[in-house]
Amino acid sequence: MSALTGVLYAALVAYLGGWYLGRWTGNFALLLFVLTSVTMLYWLAERFHFAPARNKAAQDLLDNDAKRRQTLAAQGINRVDGDIEPARQQLLQQPWWLDWTAGLFPVILIVFLLRSFLFEPFKIPSGSMVPTLLVGDLILVNKFHYGVRLPVINKKIVANNDVKRGDVMVFRYPEDPSTDFIKRVAGIPGDEVAYVNQKLYINGQLAPTQPVDNFYDDSGSPRVYRPRFNEKLGDKQHQILVRPDAQAYFRADRADGPFPFQENCRYTIEGVTCKVPAGHYYMLGDNRDNSRDSRFWGFVPDENIVGKAFLVWMNFGNLKRIGTFFN
């Protein structure tokens, strides 16, 4: 078993090393599920086989020593040298390969359950959600807000809250489902969403906006001040950035070809208008002119939903961000 455990750890190190070096794309949810399953098997084996075997061996040692002492006492020898306690402790000691597998199972199980059904951490990798979320923000995602889903396969088994316009949602990127993305929900099933001449329309109604100030956007190149606005989607108000000199024309450019329901969208020199199909959502970045979103790669299906983002719990470059709640 020690050799088998060594091989498993070597495979884990190779997988993580290749993931870190970019040789392949890792799947943390699947990895955590496999680690939970493997350590659970070791934990069960320890509880029902290895630990009872060690306890029996230690008890046999005590019984044999007691019989030896009784035999010697019957012969008139009452003083017997030899302390078997160190040997008994050695028999009871858990080997390293069980300590590093069965011993880790409770911790890994707790992490697996918390991450799968309650909260998952997520790091903001780009400036597409500036000014709401900054590059380097470490956020928490509520996994059960939209319903309980089975880990790894992401199948919803219990429904909860409906997705609403204005929600900040983490989802599996339609072009590469192994990658998580974060955007704001602009359209829900049945909505007609139009982004024309840098203005957002939902079902023909202009989304209310109010100018705020200029925001220093250092998430892209060049780093400049951009006009910041308050925007209202549904009952939620949030801030967006709009670059007046940005090109207004968008085109479908999904890497793997036409996106599903692309026929629901009309692209013109002024912008794009899409009818959101059933079971799908239309996503936009708050940094409207620095975000590749549904305007380019289409709709997000319900089965791609990861959860609702709600809290910045850490930003090592800007500690003032810690504890920031957002819509």
Rank of each mutant, 00 (worst) to 15 (best):
R254Y: 03
D162V: 02
I139K: 08
T209I: 09
G82S: 01
W297H: 09
V141S: 02
C274I: 05
N304W: 04
G18Y: 10
T268M: 07
N78P: 00
R223W: 02
L30F: 13
H145F: 12
W313N: 02
R79G: 00
P121H: 06
F261A: 14
G187I: 04
G187V: 03
V306R: 10
Q59L: 10
G76Y: 05
R223D: 11
D162R: 12
S178V: 06
G127F: 09
A3M: 13
P277Y: 09
S221I: 10
R184N: 08
I153G: 01
Q89M: 09
V276I: 09
I322R: 14
P52K: 02
A14I: 11
V193N: 08
Y9N: 06
G18D: 07
F122I: 04
Y216R: 04
G285R: 03
D191P: 01
A186K: 02
N287Y: 09
D286Y: 03
A57E: 15
R23W: 15
L138F: 12
G298V: 05
A57C: 11
L233E: 01
V38T: 05
M1C: 05
L30A: 15
R115T: 14
P177G: 00
Q89E: 15
Q89R: 15
R88A: 11
W19T: 15
E192K: 13
E270R: 15
K56R: 14
A53P: 00
V111W: 06
N78Q: 12
L4S: 14
